[in-house]
Simulated scan of single mutants.
Amino acid sequence: MPSLRHNGSSEDSPATESDRGPRDAYLDAARACILDLGWRRTTLTEVARRAGVSRMTIYRSWSDMSQLLGDLMTREWRGVVTEAVAAEDPSRPAVERLVEEVAQTVRVLRENELFVRIVELDPELILPYLLSRRGRSQELVLDVVERAIGAAQETGEVRAGNPRAMARGLVLAAHGFVLSAHTMVDEAVSEADLDEELRVTLTRALQS
């Protein structure tokens, strides 16, 4: 079964240390600014200062902070997906493998320091991707999940159905476990308990 790690074009993959370019350094500077100052107080001028380049150098890549944030979030969330599936076991059954990849992506994203910082200080930045439109990172995840579902359907490991709709259903289910899990944690239910419930939900959604 295709995994989240092995699908998509090379341009969708996070940069490695060997192929990082100047833009990655600028995005690193932007990331550090947002972690320190929050989105509202971060400017292209501050990003340029931290990156050690002129403001015009940054403006040649991004005309405003919204464009820069879009590229930063895309790079960050792609990296989250890569990290979540780094330890995948190709010998596992297709359903188990896909469920674990999604569950691990949810867990890693929920703990990602940039994501946590944005949710804490500037949650309105996330709202468009929940209420109005899909982002580039969501499209990437949807594409690779859809491919994985389609491949597993061919072997009979995943139930029949529209793989695109099924992929979107899985991602919608995962949204709540990323954004709202903390509201459901108390002395009776732990985060690990919820993660296990996510695995059960995803498994039953995929099984034939």
Rank of each mutant, 00 (worst) to 15 (best):
M1L: 02
S3G: 14
H6P: 13
N7F: 15
G8A: 03
S9M: 04
D12A: 05
P14N: 00
S18W: 12
G21S: 12
Y26A: 04
R31D: 02
A32T: 13
C33W: 01
R40Y: 01
R41V: 01
T43F: 07
V47A: 01
R50I: 02
R50P: 05
G52K: 09
V53H: 03
V53F: 13
S54H: 04
R55A: 00
M56E: 01
M56N: 01
T57A: 08
I58T: 06
S61K: 08
W62Q: 00
D64K: 01
L68I: 07
L68D: 02
G70S: 13
G70V: 10
D71E: 13
D71P: 10
R75T: 12
R75G: 09
R78T: 02
G79C: 00
T82V: 06
E83S: 07
E83H: 03
A84P: 01
A86V: 10
D89L: 01
P90C: 00
S91I: 00
P93D: 02
A94S: 06
V95T: 06
R97S: 05
L98Y: 08
L98T: 03
E100S: 08
E100V: 09
V102T: 04
A103W: 11
Q104D: 03
T105H: 07
T105R: 02
T105S: 04
R107W: 06
L109S: 12
E113M: 07
F115V: 12
V116E: 09
P123R: 00
P123T: 03
I126G: 08
P128L: 00
Y129W: 13
Y129N: 05
L131M: 06
S132D: 02
S132H: 07
R133F: 03
R136V: 11
D143L: 07
V144Y: 09
V144F: 10
A151P: 15
R159F: 10
R164M: 04
A165Q: 09
V171Q: 07
L172Y: 15
A174C: 14
H175K: 11
G176N: 11
V178N: 12
L179R: 14
L179A: 15
S180H: 15
D186V: 06
D186W: 09
E187R: 02
E187I: 06
S190C: 11
A192T: 15
L198M: 07
R199C: 13
T201A: 13
A205G: 11
L206N: 04
Q207P: 13
